[in-house]
């Protein structure tokens, strides 16, 4: 009964609002969103302006991230690239979620046979390396920005679908759904008012983390030369263009990549903070 009871004082948890990491993540996240919405606020330069006399300038006060082979300002390109990269990430996440909700609900709410089929299907896709799934789609549909969104979305779908199905099943089997049945509630009402809201609750966190993952995957495809094509200022495409000059101009790949890393890290930290606030411990 009293095994390992920890006195209350020891359980007081640090809230995310007290951690410097949270505030740093929030600040960086806001900065990227700002760059995506109004890039002109952050840089006065044009990302497509060519100055052949300034090619491969290393980072300096004038060009904090240096310049590329055509003398374009890398910082301006990173700032202007935020919009498209964010859009690709959000689009792919939305696509993946939409497909996942359909599949997950089919599995979680359909009969036993339907669940068995969809679950196998989801598991099989989940088992498959995500980037490969995306590559297959690009191979079939050809190389374009649209395909890139679809490919990343489909690649992220199995993970979400698994989660949705698991949540729906867990909530359906929970004590509080049984309590609703005992009160004489019909299945439709229980589904809409109790099962779905509770099943989708943890998705908020998942989306925060998922957008970051989608941006990384999209950038990886871009890096391989699949997706938005240079010279468009998009993070993946910039990585691809910088690949050829990596030994002579390290800044071409370093800075766009670092921004991607910091942004996904920020999303991870923010996602965890959201989870810490919305899902207080102690629930069984």
């Amino acid at each position: 009964m009293s095994v390992l009871t920890v006195p209350n004082a020891a359980r007081t948890r640090r809230t995310p609002l007290h951690s410097a990491g949270f505030w740093a993540a929030l600040a960086f996240g806001v900065l990227v969103v700002l760059a995506a919405a109004v890039p002109r606020l952050l840089t006065g330069r044009d990302p497509l302006d060519i100055h052949l006399d300034q090619s491969f300038d290393p980072p300096s006060v004038a060009h904090v991230f240096g310049t590329d082979q055509s003398g374009r300002d890398v910082f301006a390109r990173v700032v202007y690239g935020a919009g498209q990269s964010l859009l690709i990430g959000l689009g792919a996440t939305a696509l993946g979620l939409a497909g996942a909700v359909v599949l997950g609900l089919l599995g979680g709410l359909g009969g036993r046979a339907l669940d068995a089929v969809t679950t196998r299907f989801i598991e099989v896709l989940y088992a498959f390396p995500g980037l490969l799934l995306a590559l297959i789609l690009i191979a079939v549909f050809g190389n374009s920005a649209g395909t890139q969104v679809i490919a990343v979305g489909v690649a992220s779908m199995p993970g979400y679908a698994r989660m949705v199905r698991g949540q729906v099943l867990a909530v359906r089997g929970s004590g509080y759904v049984q309590a609703e049945r005992v009160l004489g509630r019909g299945p439709a009402r229980i589904l809409v008012r109790t099962v779905l809201p509770n099943a989708f609750r943890p998705l908020a966190v998942l989306i925060t983390l998922g957008v970051g993952q989608a941006i990384v995957w999209a950038a990886a495809l871009g890096f391989l030369g699949l997706g938005v094509q240079p010279p468009a200022p998009e993070w993946g495409a910039m990585l691809n263009a910088g690949r050829d000059y990596v030994q002579q101009a390290w800044w071409l790949d370093f800075f766009p990549g670092a921004v991607i890393v910091l942004f996904t890290l920020s999303l991870t930290v923010l996602g965890r903070a959201v989870r810490a606030v919305t899902e207080p411990g102690g629930r069984r």
């Binding site: 950038a219 990886a220 990549g257 890393v261 890290l265 991870t268």
Partner: peptide
Amino acid sequence: GVEVIAAALPQFWLGVVLLLVFAV
């Protein structure tokens, strides 16, 4: 903290950084 950061490192960036530091 290091684990969280390591898990978030994309290979296309980590690879380039390792290449630049240890090889170049």
